[in-house]
């Protein structure tokens, strides 16, 4: 999924450049009724974006839960595996620096 992620990270986060959403929609509290249509427009892109950017990050795992901890127990790997151990060995000071 990483290569797919690379192509459009900016788009994934901020949406398609074509369909720019107003950064600050501010309106008078009075007379808000007539501008409901605008609200719809304002909030739609986000939902669509999540649908189109389904792979990789966030699509189904994003829920309304307001939680900064990203716990993904399903993806926890078995770190007693030798290949895995070797793959991150150099991230430690005990790794092989000569390379």
């Amino acid at each position: 999924t990483i290569s797919r992620q690379n192509k459009n990270l900016m788009q994934l986060v901020y949406g398609q450049p074509g369909l720019e959403i107003g950064a600050a929609v501010q309106e008078r509290l009075s007379g808000s009724e007539s501008e409901d249509g605008e609200d719809d427009e304002f909030f739609k892109p986000k939902g669509e974006r999540e649908k189109t950017s389904n792979e990789g990050i966030g699509a189904d795992s994003f829920s309304a839960e307001d939680c900064s901890k990203y716990s993904n127990y399903a993806n926890t790997k078995d770190w007693s595996n030798d290949d895995l151990i070797q793959s991150i060995r150099d991230r430690f000071v005990t790794g092989d620096w000569s390379k």
Partner: peptide, 16 residues
């Protein structure tokens, strides 16, 4: 590392 869903939402809120 990999951007988390929460991180992405944060970026959107920051822009807004």
């Amino acid at each position: 590392g990999r951007l988390t869903p929460y991180g992405i939402e944060t970026l959107r809120n920051i822009r807004e």
